[in-house]
């Protein structure tokens, strides 16, 4: 369930041979840390190296969609600041 955007399909096909998109969707990383994560996947986890412009496209998509400001999916308890849904709010 990757949100639409330029680079969505390329990101999907680069990631899902090994793991599902859930782990991707639940990160909220800066460009530097996404780049480092791609390098780590290539160096340690058998991901084929990404050549530019594909790498740039994927990196742009990841930062745009799952950057530090993005509301990462999954449970985020209410520490500081409290990015938390009100459990008592009715739909």
């Amino acid at each position: 369930m990757l949100p639409a955007g330029p680079g969505r399909d390329e990101t999907f096909y680069a990631c899902v041979p090994c793991h599902s998109t859930q782990i991707v969707r639940r990160q909220g990383l800066s460009r530097e840390r996404w780049a480092e994560t791609i390098d780590w996947m290539v160096a340690r986890h058998n991901m084929p190296a990404l050549e530019a412009p594909e790498r740039t496209l994927i990196l742009d998509y990841l930062v745009q969609t799952f950057g530090p400001g993005a509301a990462a999916e999954g449970p985020r308890p209410f520490y500081t600041p409290p990015p938390r849904r009100n459990p008592f709010q009715t739909q």
């Binding site: 990160q27 994560t37 999954g74 449970p75």
Partner: peptide
């Protein structure tokens, strides 16, 4: 892990 700000990389464990 989800206690960290900015978010840290990995599975988003609460407790």
């Amino acid at each position: 892990r989800t206690q960290f700000q900015p978010p840290a990389r990995g599975n988003p464990w609460t407790m």
